[in-house]
Every structure is written in C-alpha cells, then in structure tokens.
Simulated assay, not measured.
Amino acid sequence: MTARFPLPLILLVLYLFSQNSFAKSDTETYGDIGAVTLPLFAAGWSYLNNDQQGIEQFSKAALSNLALTQLLKYAVHKKRPQGNSYTSFPSMHSSVAFQSATYLQKRYGWKYGVPAYTLASYVGWSRVKSNQHYSIDVLAGAAIGILSSAYFTERYKDLNIAPYANADGVGVHLAMNF
C-alpha cells in the first residue's frame, strides 16, 4: 500500500502562510518557518518511510489539534498583545509545533523528539518575543498539541518504555511491537 500525504498538513501550511506573510522581525519569521517545518517534516518522514499507519495517526492528531485550537480561539476571544485581533488564545503556531514534536517523539523516539521539541520551544518563544501572544497562550497551545499527539500516536517499532504513576505506586510500562 502506498502512503498518502495528509490533506490536513496541506491545509495547515496554507493557513500558516496566509496568516504570516508579512512577519515583522527575524524572530517572528524563523518562528513561522519552524511552525511550518515541523509538521512538514513529521508527515514527510512518515510518507518517505511508507508508514501509512503513522500518516493516519498524524492526520487524526493534526485535525483534532487544529479543530480544538481554532474553536478555542473564537470561544475565548482574547485580545492579542498588539491589540490587532481577538484570536490570541491559544497559540496556533505553538499547538502545531508541539503536536508535530510529540508525534515525532512518540512515533519514532527521542532521537527525533529532542530536536523537534527544541524547535517547537523556539516557535513558542518567538510568538511571545514578537508580541503575538502572551505566555499563557503559548503554554495552552503547547498543551493542546502535546495531548492531541499523545492520544493518537503509537510507537512505530521496537520497544516502547513509558513511566507511570497511580494510587498504587509508580513504575515503568514496557511494550514490544513485532
């Protein structure tokens, strides 16, 4: 079966470019590039590896992330720091970046997760630094992105190790995919 490139990613890229064609600083421009590069890399890596299951997981996470983030933007109706619109909460750039980073980490491991989370953190920082969002907007966007991929994404291959804690104690859950 041939992997298909996810339509939500194409829509996301068009949305981000349409919103930020005229960035005012290098920080904002590089943050915009990171917000587009992360989902392109995440979906592209799955596509190049013919990982149809991964593409489906990425698409579900991306769609739920985009829908919830957009819904909250209009439900909360929070004014941006510059005062130019009422779509500050939560940060779409941050939710997209952290959704992609979490997908990469959870699907392919920390080898991909560390650089992805580093870039996602820069994207979030750039939104505050360029006066597009408040810190709480970025944190909320990051949380939405992380949770959407954490819910839909499964490990690609090999051993999956996850710590857990509950009322009975703490431990490590080990799972092997064959």
Rank of each mutant, 00 (worst) to 15 (best):
L139E: 06
K24C: 03
G171D: 04
T37L: 13
S91R: 06
K79V: 15
S100C: 07
K129S: 12
L119M: 14
Y151V: 14
V13H: 04
Y86A: 08
K106P: 08
N20A: 09
L66G: 06
H173Q: 13
Y86L: 07
Q99S: 13
K60A: 10
A143W: 08
P39W: 01
Y108Q: 01
V138A: 04
N160T: 14
K24G: 14
A175V: 09
H93Y: 08
K24I: 13
Y47P: 02
A165P: 02
S46P: 00
E56D: 15
L71R: 03
L104P: 12
V76F: 10
F41S: 03
P90N: 01
Y15W: 08
Y117I: 09
N166C: 07
K73G: 12
W125A: 11
S148K: 01
G31V: 00
G124N: 02
A175S: 15
T87P: 12
G31C: 03
A67D: 05
Q132F: 09
S25V: 06
Y47S: 00
N84K: 10
N166W: 08
G169S: 03
T37S: 11
D168W: 06
K24D: 11
V114E: 02
A101Q: 11
P81Q: 01
P163T: 02
K129G: 00
Y151T: 15
G31W: 00
Y86V: 08
T153F: 03
T87W: 12
H77F: 14
A3E: 11
Y74V: 12
K24Y: 13
A42Q: 02
G169T: 06
D51Q: 02
G169V: 09
T27W: 01
P163H: 02
P8W: 02
S95V: 13
W125L: 06
Y112S: 09
G83K: 03
G145V: 09
L63G: 04
L147I: 15
K106F: 07
L159G: 11
F41N: 03
F41P: 04
F152T: 08
A43K: 00
